[in-house]
Simulated assay, not measured.
Amino acid sequence: MTEPNPHPTEPELIRVADGVAIAATLVGDGPVVLLNGGLGMPAAVWPFTGIPDALTAAGFSVITYSARGLKPSSAPPAPYTVPQMADDAIAVLDHFGVHEAIVAGYSMGCYVTQALVSQWHGRVLGVAMMAGLRSSAIGEIVNEMELGLIDRLGDLPEAVTVFEQLMTTLTPDQLVDDDAVRTWRKLLTSGDTSWAGADGLRGQLSASQSWMLAKEPTPERLAAITAPTLVLSYEHDVFFPPAGGRAAAEHLPDVEFHELDGQAHGGVMLDPQRRAMSMLTAFCTRVRGGAAAD
């Protein structure tokens, strides 16, 4: 495996296909955990979850990357597919010489995680899916709305994306707190876009929509995930409601399911208790212990 850099300054640009480069970073020392981010989530967001630092402190190497469509990776022409995005992640693993790993995803990154397990020839030591095992009708409707607006207007108005992020990311208590809503609106409208080009948003939305319309994940796909699996759902997540996640988790052969109260879809980042960070780190440590005993 490529020697990890404990203090990287810039991600590596890895050519994964013709005209497509993925920006990725490997840090830490030990068994590898690959983190697949959600729709529109560049690698720079992961540190806000506390997960990379917790994992490296626990003796793991961590790979984060910005999926196709996001800066500083490439934004090839849309549409994209989830299996295609999984192939990008596999190319990143290959670049770093990784032959076995724990694979974790958040939100749409769970779709990529599921497809990667089906497509990768390496050894999957464990699988973790946070706020993203199975989507809802609301998720399909939001994707359909956003793709329709892009087709009609050529882009997605900022007011639409801000409203959607506020309504799905914040908790019910935060949504009725005017000061909290105004603060988050200001945060969401400051800074540059994370998209690498006009095709980035359209491409990732189309990948998400095609996955959901195909009724993925199918019971067969889930039953084929034989590695130990951690599933985390949040009480107020309208995109990935706990009931749907619990029902889907029943098809996983070796699963640990947790419903975390008090949080919505943004719980991985906003939960003051950092439960996802703690539970993922504990899960990876258990999986590593089991692998060492094999």
Rank of each mutant, 00 (worst) to 15 (best):
T81R: 05
P11C: 01
V160Y: 01
A247Q: 14
E12K: 13
L13M: 09
D192K: 02
D261E: 12
R221N: 11
G97R: 11
H258W: 13
T168Q: 09
E100C: 04
A159C: 07
G245V: 07
A128I: 14
A44W: 00
P4I: 01
T49Q: 02
V124H: 08
S206M: 11
A58P: 01
P79H: 08
A75C: 05
A24P: 04
L252H: 05
A293H: 06
D192Q: 04
A159L: 07
G28E: 06
T113N: 09
L260N: 03
E164W: 09
S206L: 13
T229H: 04
D237A: 11
V33C: 02
S208F: 13
W184L: 09
L175W: 05
W195I: 02
L34H: 02
R152H: 09
V92A: 11
V162W: 02
L156F: 04
E220I: 09
V127T: 11
M41D: 00
S135Q: 12
S74P: 07
P76D: 01
P11N: 01
D88N: 02
R134H: 05
Q273C: 12
I141T: 14
L252W: 06
E256W: 02
V176W: 09
D237S: 06
P219Y: 14
V33S: 01
W211T: 03
N5D: 14
G97K: 14
C284M: 05
L147D: 08
F239V: 07
M129E: 07
G200L: 07
A291H: 15
A17S: 10
A264E: 09
A276M: 11
H251L: 12
V16N: 10
S278N: 15
D271H: 07
R182L: 13
V112H: 03
G154V: 04
G244P: 08
S135H: 14
E220M: 11
V45T: 03
H251D: 12
T161V: 09
A89W: 04
P4V: 03
P241H: 06
K215L: 11
L222Y: 08
A159N: 05
H99F: 08
